[in-house]
Design a protein around this nucleic acid. Structure first.
Lengths: 203, 203
DNA sequence: AAGATATCCAACATTTTGTAGATTAACTTG
DNA sequence: CAAGTTAATCTACAAAATGTTGGATATCTT
């Protein structure tokens, strides 16, 4: 996974990695071939194979480089008593890091719209929630944050818990899980603004 | 996208789709070739090309079939006044549907651990949060739901908002976004159980 | 029953992948 | 800086996968 100290190797890793990124700005990863990457990097294809087994291997390396700061120093685990403070600190560090490397993250974080079921379901859920939230707003209910932010928090959180639940082979019953979601959702809204119940403005 | 009324076509779509799913249970999607899919489905490869351009095209179709219920009747948009009720209803419908097709969803929802930056970052964040939450629990703080549920809700929600923010080309400032997260996180915890601040039990 | 059309089949060109051995160039270490 | 090590390049090749063709056969729709 790690390039040796040899300058040539480091150079090769860098060239291939940057080449991949460059190509990913132009076309989807699936369409990119090893030949493409090598030509673009001006590195011989046999050299590619001395370091990586396939393009996924290279991708993995490139991503691990980007992800490093999240694993190491970027987030200090000590010196917070509550987990909310800890969470906000982590969120801030994450945000800042991504913000300062935005072009790269734009490429790598882009959802593939149509070839990920998670994304598709999340999109559907987010869309419906957005509609509903907009309607609620029309009826005079005040939301603490913009609609898309709320919709994405809800949908993302829910889906992620869901995936955890599936990957753990359903460690609790379905009803139990729903109860958890219900508990978490209750307080997560309109913390202090009054709920003005005015009649709906049609649809 | 949609197969015609011709029985032969419907059959081909079904065979190919099921074949892909079957193979995905055994090996990662990237390793599966069109030839594999056709052999397994006992459908000639030229037939494949009359309907799909590549394997991603087939995957897209298969996923869209699974996702259909989310777009259509599974979630009724009317007859809820608050969005919390709406959300819980949607969550319930989603959960039930997935639960009743669990084997399929297990295959399609599985995160690819190492070739998705979103997943990697999310894992890192979830891991850190879990550690922190466990420590908090040790100090006597009572959590309303199990640690992994809370960690996954937080991490998933945060990352999803982040992705939304990036894909929308940062529609608000970084500080603004952090403020939103802060607002949303404040109420999302320990709704009614008392916070017993006892001294930390080392680490 | 007749026309339309999907499937199958054989054959082929092209692209991509992955490997091997030999040569050249660059780096590390003492 | 010299010697030994190791990486990169190059040529060549084998195997696999992709994508397209034209025509024969079977099946469906109306």
């Amino acid at each position: 996974m790690e390039p040796s100290k040899d300058l040539r190797v480091k150079r090769t890793y860098k060239l291939l990695s940057e080449s991949l990124l460059e190509l990913m700005k132009k076309m989807p990863f699936e369409k990119i071939t090893i030949t493409d990457i090598c030509n673009n990097a001006m590195v011989h294809r046999t050299t590619f194979y001395t370091h990586f087994t396939d393009k996924y291997d290279l991708l993995k390396y490139s991503l691990s480089e980007l992800e490093k700061p999240f694993d190491t120093g970027a987030v200090k685990e000590e010196s917070f008593e509550g987990y909310k403070e800890f969470y906000m600190d982590a969120a801030q560090k994450t945000l800042c890091y991504i913000d300062s490397h935005i072009e790269i993250f734009k490429v790598f974080l882009k959802k593939n719209q149509e070839d990920s079921l998670v994304t598709m379901i999340q999109n559907a859920l987010t869309e419906k929630l957005t509609q509903k939230l907009l309607k609620c707003q029309e009826t005079g209910i005040k939301l603490p944050v913009p609609v898309p932010v709320l919709a994405n928090i809800y949908a993302g959180g829910c889906l992620n818990v869901l995936i955890w639940w599936i990957e753990q082979d359903r460690p609790c019953s379905l009803d139990q899980l729903l109860e958890y979601l219900d508990i978490l959702i209750q307080p997560l809204s309109i913390p202090d603004s009054p709920r003005q119940h005015s009649p709906a403005i049609s649809s």
